[in-house]
Nucleic acid binder design. Structure first.
Lengths: 187, 187
DNA sequence: ATCACCATGTAAATCGTTACATGATTAT
DNA sequence: ATAATCATGTAACGATTTACATGGTGAT
């Protein structure tokens, strides 16, 4: 039985603690979202499939609200999770970045338009970085409580990743300025 | 008429010079692929759609091989390309990175397994970086010929991007080593 | 001859997002 | 009361990949 990466996001989340589908989404939105996003449209059907496969077990929580269903990882689920985490095969990775794509095709733009594009890219990554920074205190506290430091390290990775693009825009802007110096007076 | 990003990759490529679908794929594979991949399954149907919309014009090249069809961008196509390049709306960007995802869930792994994961991530990005470095001489020559420097800058961006992950793995490895020092002798 | 590469194209499958429907609980 | 949040779920749509089918041309 082949599992998609999204199944492992769910399995990984349940490996940390039992949760409902709604809680998985909430946790993912402040952590894995920045390097592997998931949506409700995937979560609920996948939870059913994983339960049928015996990798997780769901239990209806009585009383509180509308029938909330909390899932826990089973021993076979933990095995599957471990197998994935240590799988020596090729790691999937994919970037779809409209900003860099536009820059690649920006030859036909004038100087100001190019600068505006870089400013727009930088603004976007700064905004996401601020979002991540806002999460950090909570993640820090969580790390101290549970001893799970990787969550915090991963968050710092996310912040550094955004910073890469901010720095990139600065660098590219400087490069464009140099080129424009060289051609000043020519056209 | 709404165009997907993939349509703009094609339009952007044809904005640089007239090409066949096959050539678009070949060019994309050594340039945009690393931040926006496209496949034949998208290219050929999209070329037809763009031609019907009047944004590109195809011409059958007689003689050479099986009916090769070379497309050129039209003035309305150039307008659409410019409109996209300067669109002030939100820039799409998305990362799906299995390596970082696994690291986030690596709490259940032992020390050696975690190191192996980091080594695997580093190896992957070094490999892609080497691929990109191999392309650089050609891109340099192209920049000198056509005066289009952005293609080269974008390639350098790709190389720096891979380096980010290499550095990241180094940093994370050091962090793990520090933690393991602290706990030595405890368990 | 046979392999690599040029070249076009489609069908099926997979993956993922978005929008919608529904309804309870809790805080203001 | 009413807004926000908790909570589950599905249908439709869109995007993308993969595998397949086809056949020419040029080099070894």
């Amino acid at each position: 039985m082949e599992l998609g990466k999204t199944a492992y996001v769910i399995l990984g989340m349940l490996g940390k603690q039992p949760m409902s589908g709604y809680e998985i989404k909430a946790k993912a939105d402040i952590s894995t979202r920045f390097f592997w996003a998931i949506s409700y449209g995937q979560i609920y059907p996948e939870l059913k499939r994983l339960e049928q496969a015996g990798l997780i077990a769901g239990e209806d929580e009585a009383g509180s609200g509308r029938g909330k269903r909390v899932y826990s990882i089973t021993p076979p689920g933990r095995e599957a999770l471990h197998a994935w985490l240590t799988d020596p095969g090729e790691l999937q990775s994919e970037l779809r970045h409209e900003g860099v794509l536009r820059f690649f095709f920006a030859d036909s733009l004038d100087h100001d338009e190019r600068l505006a594009l870089l400013a727009s890219i930088r603004a976007k990554h700064k905004r996401i970085q601020a979002e991540l920074a806002a999460i950090e205190p909570g993640a820090s506290a969580h790390a101290a409580e549970t001893g799970d430091r990787l969550v915090l390290l991963t968050l710092e990775t996310g912040i550094a990743y955004q910073q890469f693009f901010v720095d990139l825009c600065d660098r590219l802007e400087r490069r464009l300025a140099e080129e424009s110096d060289q051609t000043t007076g020519e056209d």
